[in-house]
Design a protein around this nucleic acid. Sequence first.
RNA 1: GCGCCAGUAGCUCAGUCGGAUAGAGCAACGGCCUUCUAAGCCGUGGGCCGGGGGUUCGAAUCCUCCCUGGCGCGCCA
Length: 548
Amino acid sequence: MIKSKVQKFVDGCVEAGIAQGLWSEKLRGKYSVEIPKHKGQGDFSTNFAMVAAGIEKRNPRELATQFIECAGSEGDLVERLEIAGPGFVNVFLNPSVWATVIEPICTQDTSFGPPPVNEKKRVLVEFVSANPTGPLSVGHGRNAILGDAIARLLESVGHDVHREYYFNDAGRQMRVLGQSTKARYCELLGKPADFPEDGYQGEYIYDIARSMVEESGDALCDGELDVFKKKAQEAIFADIDATLKRIDIRFDSYFNEHTLYETGQIEDVVKCLRSQGLVYEKDDATWFKTSELGLEQDRVIIKSSGEPTYRLPDIAYHREKFRRDFSWMINVFGSDHIATVPDVLAGVRALGYDDSLITVVLYQFVTLLRDGKQVKMSTRKATFVTVDELVDEVGGDALRFFFLMRKPDSQLEFDLDLAKKQNQENPVYYVQYAHARLCSIGREAMEQKIEHKDADLSLLTEPEEYALLKIMADYPQLVSGAAEDLAPHRIIFYLMELAGQFHSFYNKHKVLGDDAELCRARLSLCAAVKVVIRNGLNLLGIQAPERM
RNA sequence: GCGCCAGUAGCUCAGUCGGAUAGAGCAACGGCCUUCUAAGCCGUGGGCCGGGGGUUCGAAUCCUCCCUGGCGCGCCA
């Protein structure tokens, strides 16, 4: 909000210099305007003189002096300019400009946030995409919450976002699921059960089998495997759906791999690739010549059994995304899928599409700690902690907050014991508590019938007040940047800083004090802080409670 | 052996496409409630930013070579 004004001001100085022939026009856009780290270095600073010095081969301080001369009469925005350090120009603003952030925040209220992007895109965010073989586990949880937060961020900057879940209910995994279920069913009936070597050992398989016994008795013992497969798949998918709803995650569409077979897409992709000489047969299998597309080795796309490998439907699926006219496709994958990415991108490229429109967000694994020890997890043995269990233990808000605290590239350590005792020290409460306090102040003001419309904001002169105003002024740009970089964790850190600054302010200064005018001004400030905290939390799908 | 990610305070991690004197939370220690919510605040200590070399006015950030940890390198997904 304020920064863009300063940026314009600096740009103006640079242009004036160009007009006067002080430096070349090559300098346009080469410098930056930043918020200095330390006190005494102004509200903003620019490295213009240092950047210019490098290009023009001149002394930075001399350039800085000329820059300041170009500023001329500075208007209401800038109070003074200083040269510091190796050649920074520090910009000190007229303090009164900071309070101007309050009005737009309060007016825009729930819609206060980042400016819309210049180029609005039709974005497909594909996430979760777990096959229905069991309940969602911790890793899926990170995927779900990360994907949803990314989708929310992109929506907030004006993109047209579509959430999609891609899944497969056929193939080997599902066959094993059916066999596992049938074996448990027979076992429950006291009949010989043939539990598969690599079957799913989770308790949830018994639950499904038990419900089948209740429904059908022993009638299915000699029945088709498909019945078990279908039943298990439906039950598990219903569970996954329910889990996702619990943490408020919804999809616009589910894409079943099946449809790619039914509509002939799979065969068509092979045909297209083959026509370009990128497909050949060897050892009864069909190979994709990825080595000709810059990759290390060729890959099998159809096994000797006649069944495609995951690559083929994946390529077909991505072609469908392009055909559905998305201009940005985001995939949220666990880092164990990293090897699959280059093949699929190569396939998409070979089919004539621009694979730079696909962004793959790979997140690192979640390490779970219990009793200070790492929990070993195995999907098949079902020795994993489910998203449902996590929600039971820490709640949806804390779960989202924790999963979003780390950037995707970082491994995420989740200490269950810590999370459980975190009723007291959970950082999510720290931020939510600030909001609850603000609401409390608002309620009290209401009771005392104190209005804060048209308050004299020039009364906000305490350091804690300026600090709050400055942080809030940064919000729109922060969200824009976080959206652009698909980095929801920055919102978390921002909110912790804003909440912290508010708590400091709250402890040092009384809002509803004796001075009626000051009280009104501070109420305006608080109203704005409340809006920003609430909007920030909601942006991540976290509640902003009015009482705690 | 090859690829990707990480290595920053005792622990968990930020550090916004190279900026000035290195940041937060937790843990430790010492203070603050007759006052709008103490789920809070204030103060103290704590660092060869994994290591070497390089690029330049300037490096936690970029390049290179090592070390350590994680994930991969299937006719599994």
